[in-house]
Amino acid sequence: MNIAVHTARAPHLVRALEMLARRGAPSPDSLLEELAGITVLVARKFTNERTADRLLEAHYLTIGCISLGIALADIAHDDGSELAFLLKQGAEQVFQAGFRHIRELAGMPNQQIVSAYDKAPDAQQNDIKSLFLKLCKADPNLKWTGDEVYKEDFKARLENQKFINCAKWLRKNHYAGSVILDQSGNKITEMDTDAVINVAVIFSILNDGRIVARINQREIESLVRSVRKAKPNFEAGWRELLKKMPLEYHAFLNKSMNNLKNKIIQKIMSGTELKTIVTEIQNYAGMEQDVDYD
């Protein structure tokens, strides 16, 4: 089990301002004006600028977002350099940089399944807002770890992105042409990522050189019949599949292979009843199996 290591500390902006105070130089008016201005803009957009407690919340969000901008900037991370960076760029620029990081994160998938709703503008706006509220709320008197959480979220979403790209690659290289339309001719807007990979893994045991990303029931039946007749070496089939795929996707397929090896693959190779196998593959193939109406 991984235990996240958090280094508890005050928000970066607060530390930078404390540094400024320690130097004894008067803080530049423009910086304070900027901070106040940003707080009002944040309140107008996200909280409510007409009540004191919502303004306070906007104040915390401002501190957090600027701190995120500082934390993720490509600079040396000691109090002195962070302060120099803040003074040179100005609070608004640094806030904007922080907010862009939030946008970038929101642009990446937060789940492994692709749904038609993901790309809707209000879904994306909601994602930006919820990430902003989650990561950037920094009470200057408390410890803040928004930047650590950001990095973890970023890693998780990057992994999702790769996972989805892997399934997209399989769909694109589907033996019967890229998977775009379903059987009734409607555009497919959703993707059950796990299922696409499972299908490809299951169907490659035949080692007939095909890449299969989407199936229907008849294909399952013919797969089982062919496998029982030809008795192929399923691991050879998998090696062939992996050879065709970009290296970065291998991990996802290996995982699925290990997972399926002693379960459904065993059953296909042995004499388990066809009906049982069809039902079981349906579980693995999820939404990636077209429904047969006959």
């Binding site: 423009s30 004006e33 803009l41 957009k45 904007q96």
Partner: peptide, 13 residues
């Protein structure tokens, strides 16, 4: 009135 020129809503862009 502030002398400082603000980016306004552009900070969210």
């Amino acid at each position: 009135a502030s002398k400082h020129l603000s980016m306004g809503d552009d900070i969210f862009s």
